[in-house]
């Protein structure tokens, strides 16, 4: 079986996987990082979004072996101890989640949006950029507000 090595949330990890092991399975089952969710397993919903070498990807549509040697960031890598990341705090403050299932993917996508579009985001940009993330609860309105507020808070 192939061995993979990667940096996950700043730590070096390695493990034996099957070639067909998805990155999301490796994160959840080998590393027990269950914050990354599987909503659809068909590349539609974005619940599984993580960053690979700084870019958002759907970890259900990438093999673990493809991420060999890469730096991966998951939702668990954002907070410092009890101190939430400003984007996480913004979701909390703006009621950007209800059941919370989509939230890890929303937050990881939100950070990718800020990386590419800066801290001043208008509503149209946020809605367009969230096209790959599905939420069954909130109706998106408060998610958009959260992303906008989180982006601003990250400036400071």
């Amino acid at each position: 079986m192939p061995t993979v090595k990667m940096q996950v949330n700043g730590k070096s990890v390695s493990g034996e996987v099957e070639s067909r092991t998805l990155l999301v399975q490796f994160l959840r089952e080998n590393l027990h990082l269950t914050g990354t969710h599987i909503g659809c397993d068909t590349s539609q919903c974005g619940a599984c979004v993580v960053h690979v070498d700084g870019k958002s990807v759907k970890s259900c549509t990438m093999l673990a072996v493809m991420a060999d040697g890469c730096a991966v960031t998951t939702i668990e890598g954002l907070a410092s101890g009890a101190q939430l990341h400003p984007m996480q705090q913004a979701f909390m403050d703006n009621h950007g989640l209800q059941c919370g299932f989509c939230t890890p993917g929303m937050v990881m996508t939100a950070l990718d949006i800020v990386n590419r579009n800066g801290n001043n985001l208008d509503e149209a940009t946020i809605r367009k950029e969230l096209e790959g993330n599905i939420c069954r609860c909130t109706g998106y309105h408060n998610i958009v507000k959260s992303v906008q507020a989180g982006a601003k808070a990250m400036e400071g």
């Binding site: 958002s56 759907k58 990718d112 590419r116 096209e131 790959g132 993330n133």
Partner: peptide, 9 residues
Amino acid sequence: IGDPAVRNR
């Protein structure tokens, strides 16, 4: 094309 995560891969 698709969404940002699809476009990244």
